[in-house]
């Protein structure tokens, strides 16, 4: 009752919040409620509530489905590539930028490398496909110039993940370096001066001053990255995907889209989506717990 009276006293604020909560309820919690069709045999005419229950049937089917293992494996492997190859790149870029003494050159590199972040995956992928084309692509032109044979990058499953990694590197390295670069500008310049006076070489200063100062930021970003291990950028993967590289490139969302929306297997693909979301939630919670433990309760997502 006390709470109700408190709401009434702040009725204007309450009204504001309620309006906003309607949208969170409808478009964020609404789909969560719709997940119950993963436990039903959904058909359009009966709707979400009216469709008959199916228990765990769809989850049993999922465990026996080789396609499920394929998308699960691809998601994990691509994410592993990202952690190993894409994650360190912005750190290296930030450290390099920090060593640049000409302000205009620093700005030039930053302005250019941030730009691809703002361009859509449709265009980035379209350009990659164009530049990698075996007939007219510049990349194959260079390969041939060195005497090699042209490679059909988008037609061979083995090239899918490397293309994904390189495109992600080009699009996001600059942008992701901002947070590390900002951490670097907080370092006391006296540390560098003192080290120089003591005769420290450039690489020694990087090794003993720059990198240790970055370590807290790197740790937190790394752990938070692990929390996203089950997710994949749909727009990136979808635009590079074709039947020739399903084997190495098909992931959760692209599979759910193809089988669920195009072949109308709503309940089954809802079960697949739910599996992904639940594991993803567990990973984020775990990552946040780890981040808190490591930073002594200082940092974490919340």
């Amino acid at each position: 009752m006390l709470v109700l009276r408190s709401f009434w006293r702040h009725k204007e604020l309450t009204a504001m919040l309620l309006v906003a909560l309607v949208f969170f309820g409808l478009f964020r919690y609404g789909p969560m409620y719709g997940l119950i069709i993963a436990f039903k045999n959904f058909n359009i005419s009966d709707g979400i509530l009216g469709s008959p229950w199916a228990g765990l049937e769809h989850f049993r089917r999922l465990i026996a489905d080789p396609n499920f293992y394929r998308i699960f494996r691809n998601t994990l492997i691509i994410n592993l590539y990202y952690v190993l190859l894409v994650f360190p790149a912005p750190i290296v870029l930030a450290v390099m930028l920090n060593e640049v003494r000409h302000r205009w050159f620093q700005r030039l590199v930053q302005t250019t490398t941030y730009l691809p972040h703002f361009i859509s995956w449709v265009i980035i992928s379209g350009l990659f496909i164009y530049f990698l084309s075996p007939s007219a692509g510049v990349v194959n032109y260079i390969i041939q110039w060195f005497g090699g044979d042209p490679i059909f990058f988008m037609g061979e499953a083995g090239y899918f993940r490397p293309v994904l990694v390189v495109s992600m590197l080009l699009k996001e390295t600059g942008w992701n370096s901002i947070i590390f670069f900002a951490a670097l500008s907080a370092i006391d310049p006296q540390l560098y001066e003192a080290a120089t006076v003591d005769g420290a070489k450039r690489w020694q200063r990087i090794l003993h001053i720059t990198l240790p100062s970055l370590l807290p930021t790197i740790t937190i970003m790394f752990i938070l990255n692990l929390g996203g291990f089950m997710s994949m950028n749909f727009e990136q993967v979808y635009n590079f995907l074709n039947p020739l590289n399903f084997e190495t490139g098909d992931v959760f969302d692209t599979y759910v889209y193809r089988v669920g929306l195009e072949q109308f297997q709503y309940s089954y693909t809802a079960a697949i989506g739910m599996f992904r979301s639940v594991i993803g939630l567990a990973l984020v919670l775990l990552a946040n717990y780890a981040a808190r433990r490591l930073s002594g309760g200082e940092q974490g997502l919340w």
Binding site: P31, G34, I37, V256, G273
Partner: peptide
């Protein structure tokens, strides 16, 4: 809502 989502199919049905 940042941590958990219904996903493609439930959103479609909604």
């Amino acid at each position: 809502t940042m941590l958990f989502e219904g996903g493609i199919i439930p959103t479609y049905l909604l």
